[in-house]
């Protein structure tokens, strides 16, 4: 039983990371109808920035995360401006392919600049906490709590501020949003900024638990896509819930079934659910 609860905690940690990445993808999809295949690689860049800020420039953990988020916000905005905005009126297959191009570029650049080595980031919080008989490292607790804080923050931003509600308005009804004078370019720029920032935060939080390497984003990216398809593309609660479901499914199946096939669990789940419900679990209407 203790093993089971341990796996639940691990699942929550994984799920927190997945949710944050999936939130970014779903936000971008909601605004631009673009499945951003490069998103996982922004996540990877975020981890590297944090890593170098700590090891090379001697920043401490939290300022390094802040710097990484800021750097990725800028990169995300640049991508939107240079690549995706010009493609906005092209057929949708084009911007999807462009995002694949961006993805290949980012990964190759990272590999060239920093090599393919696996790097380890030492956590400043390596203590262990005893919680109801479970031993949990502090870093894991930080991941779970920060992810929840970020999600609440995002929710408040979208629901309670005027700028945030322009994002929601545009995701709900593009034409309606234009009618009330919302600037589409500004909103998509902002969405890219937020999504990239979330990815950087997620990667920086996860970096001390996982390793940092150039292709670390690829699998996370694929799984985040599984999540948003499960949750309904563009749906924010779907992304959060889907993230935790996948995290838990993975850590539990990894323990009780076979850890070799742990990565398969996510995709098998997707195939199964889409076979039964082609629109995803939480989509509002049939396509």
């Amino acid at each position: 039983m203790e093993l089971f609860f341990q796996q639940i905690v691990n699942g929550l940690v994984l799920g927190s990371i997945y949710s944050l990445v999936a939130l970014g993808i779903t936000l971008i999809y909601g605004i631009m109808q673009l499945p951003n295949f490069a998103h996982g690689h922004l996540y990877m860049l975020g981890a590297y920035v944090t890593f170098f800020m700590i090891t090379h420039y001697g920043l401490s953990y939290w300022p390094a995360i802040l710097f990484s988020v800021a750097a990725l916000v800028v990169i995300g905005m640049l991508l939107e401006r240079l690549v995706f905005r010009p493609l906005h009126h092209a057929p949708h297959i084009n911007s999807m392919i462009a995002s694949i191009g961006v993805m290949l570029f980012i990964e190759a650049t990272a590999r060239k600049m920093w090599g393919s080595d696996y790097r380890r980031l030492d956590s400043p919080y390596d203590g262990v906490i005893d919680l109801f008989g479970l031993t949990i490292t502090e870093q894991r607790i930080i991941v779970i709590l920060s992810a929840i804080a970020l999600m609440i923050g995002l929710n408040l931003f979208l629901k309670r501020t005027v700028i945030g509600s322009t994002i929601e308005a545009m995701a709900q009804n593009r034409e309606g949003a234009f009618l009330v004078g919302i600037n589409a370019n500004k909103v998509s720029l902002m969405t890219f900024a937020i999504a990239s920032g979330l990815a950087a935060a997620a990667a920086s939080l996860a970096a001390p638990i996982n390793l940092v390497y150039p292709s670390m984003g690829a699998m996370v990216n694929l799984k985040a896509f599984v999540i948003i398809v499960l949750g309904g593309m563009g749906s924010i609660p779907g992304a959060v819930l889907g993230g935790y479901i996948l995290g838990l499914a993975e850590s539990i199946s990894g323990t009780y079934i076979n850890s070799e096939y742990k990565d398969l669990a996510a995709f098998a789940l997707l195939v199964f659910i889409l076979t039964v419900r082609p629109t995803g679990l939480f989509a509002k209407e049939a396509r």
């Binding site: 499945p35 949708h92 999807m96 599984v226 997707l270």
Partner: peptide, 10 residues
């Protein structure tokens, strides 16, 4: 997009 993502997962 659903098809593209599904095929990627396949």
């Amino acid at each position: 997009h659903y098809f593209a993502i599904f095929s990627l997962c396949m």
